[in-house]
Design a protein around this nucleic acid. Sequence first.
DNA 1: AATCAAACTTGACTGACATTCATTTTTGCG
DNA 2: CGCAAAAATGAATGTCAGTCAAGTTTGATT
Lengths: 244, 244
Amino acid sequence: MGLSEVNGFAVTILLRARPKMNIPQFRIEGKMTSENPPVIEGRVARRQARNRAALIDAARLIMSQKGIDAATMSEIAELADVGAGTVYNYFKSKDDLAVAVLEHLMFELALKIEKVTNTFTDAGQVYAFGLRTVIDTATGDLRWRQLLNRSEVMANAMFRQMGPFAIRDLENATKAGRFRVTDAPLVWTMATHAIVGVALAVTTDELPQSAIEECVVRLLCMTGIGLDEALDLAHRDRPDLAAQ
Amino acid sequence: MGLSEVNGFAVTILLRARPKMNIPQFRIEGKMTSENPPVIEGRVARRQARNRAALIDAARLIMSQKGIDAATMSEIAELADVGAGTVYNYFKSKDDLAVAVLEHLMFELALKIEKVTNTFTDAGQVYAFGLRTVIDTATGDLRWRQLLNRSEVMANAMFRQMGPFAIRDLENATKAGRFRVTDAPLVWTMATHAIVGVALAVTTDELPQSAIEECVVRLLCMTGIGLDEALDLAHRDRPDLAAQ
DNA sequence: AATCAAACTTGACTGACATTCATTTTTGCG
DNA sequence: CGCAAAAATGAATGTCAGTCAAGTTTGATT
């Protein structure tokens, strides 16, 4: 929804990648994970919130189209309808903006998953469902494809935004005797990087589509349940996310 | 061996990162994975081999010092003692050069591991030992630290250069009834990305040093042996690699 | 040894940005 | 309305990655 413009690809694409950047400074504080519009004080604050959101949105659009590196700050600024210099009032650097975009994306997905799984009774199944949804999204959603190329950033954003949920689930399932995880953050770190790696390989056709299913199984193996139980867990019914 | 010069860090470091690059063309063919100096025909060919090696060496030195993005082509060319333009006769682009550097590094390590493990009798143990060695190197060797920031490239190089060995071991161990792996390339893809991710997190102090041990265990879990067997395998005696 | 074309080198130059900063505009307030 | 502080702006700066026209080297041929 909302990908209307920029139908094909600008034919004028210059295959650029990885420029150099300087050490930046900036002013405006304030986070805003986009979920929670609990009335913002003051007109300025509101405009800033709007600008920030517009920038993230514009960046998301352009970056997921041409890739993070090929996106230029000026076009992002223009699409967000602010001056080129203004971007730096909101984000320290291009990379910082990219991180914001990715975290935004991840947080949205985390919430979507949370909404479905909070009715589940088996903590293990919650984790399994989360894994599968993330991989499916990463390989299926066009908007993610280009972003996968910066895997550390992607995996990091995934770690931070979905981590609280994932780690909670890993620990719950362990308490319930379902999993055997001693260091949940470690397992989740490994999972995020593996997911991004596999997603990248699948979208590049280095791995077949079918690897996704098996990937979920292997990620479940990492939780210390055996292969058989992992297979069982992975193949259980899974409710559908209300498709994006 | 041979890291003599550049003792500390140039204090003049400019924190740069990710420039833009164009689509390149180039001429000279020829690989040369550095292992196998089987007499190269002709003076030209020899000079080219020397240049290529010098470039990879220079790039390795500088990139592992300032990071891949912050390294500039000119300084690499200068250190390798060739003209700035010459680099492009050997490598299509900066990224291409970086890939060559990483693959070189990986191949060396793969051979080192191979040399030790080809006396092992248990295929599972070979894989386990390989995993541990890679993680130890990635987190311990200073020269690797900076390179981890481009995780996709790193993981990719690892996949390609060590993959033949790793996949062979996974399959052998499976045939021997030791592991239960149906799709070895997938498992190895997941492993490489997870390894790089964990190494990155450890060198960044986001994960404790102790995570390394547990990481090996969890990677072994992915092979379909249970947690207990994984623990057992991970804790077995491991011969030392003749230290770098 | 002299000649020549092909194969290589070279480094000055170009085009592209990311980021900065002097100015201008907007706000909030007395 | 008048001001100082906070924000926005876009022209200007600095830094490369990658190109290319001109200069060298090579080895084959005479």
